Amino acid sequence: MIFSLVGLFSCAEEKKKLPAGLLPPAKLTSILADIHIAEAQVEEMRLSPDTAKVMFNRLQADVLKKYGVSEKQFTKTYTYYLNNLKDLDKIYEGLIDTLAMREVQMSSKSGDAGADSAKTKKMPDTLKSRLMQKSKARRDSIRSIDTLK
């Protein structure tokens, strides 16, 4: 009897219920990957800060539209994860893996003869390294905040 209760509680912890209206972790990871790519693309343009902010906001709105997500739902979800840093750390671990997988896919597609060159163009190394650095830095800052608690 005691073992079944322990098992029940451990399963409850593993499958923590998300509050209603939040995006699933996998979808959030995909959205964040696209947002980080958009952010890096804007940085590559070397625009004035005001212009860069307008451009990034437009690209972010396009990403949210692509996934059928409102800005309110995205903000609610991201705020939830900011208040649950261990879960956000897992999201960023997945994000780093997602960005690495996309790089591999882009590299493998670049050899396809009939493919659209805009889609298969290899991500510039500077853009890729900045994306990976930013994602890792955010994940590391999340971990350091979590250890302060």
Results as ranks from 00 to 15, higher is better:
E71I: 07
S10N: 04
S4D: 10
M106L: 12
D62V: 01
S129I: 14
Q60A: 15
F9R: 00
D87E: 15
E71R: 10
D50C: 08
E39N: 12
L18W: 05
L22F: 05
F74S: 03
F56Y: 06
E44M: 07
D125K: 14
L88P: 02
I91W: 00
C11L: 14
V63L: 12
L85V: 06
V6L: 15
T120Q: 08
E71K: 08
T75L: 13
G94S: 11
S129R: 13
T120N: 13
L148Y: 10
H36F: 13
D34S: 09
D116V: 07
D34R: 04
K66M: 11
L18I: 06
Y80G: 00
E93R: 12
G68C: 08
T120M: 09
K128G: 05
I35C: 06
R143E: 10
M106R: 15
N84C: 01
T147S: 15
I35H: 01
A52C: 01
S48L: 11
D112F: 14
K134D: 13
E14L: 07
T98Y: 00
V63G: 11
N57S: 12
E103M: 04
K66T: 08
R138E: 15
G114L: 15
L95D: 07
D116R: 07
E103N: 11
S110H: 09
D34G: 03
T79M: 10
I96F: 00
L85H: 01
L8S: 12
I96M: 05
I91S: 00
L127N: 11
L131F: 07
C11I: 11
I2H: 11
Q133G: 00
G94I: 03
T29W: 03
E71S: 12
L8V: 00
L22H: 02
T120G: 09
M1E: 06
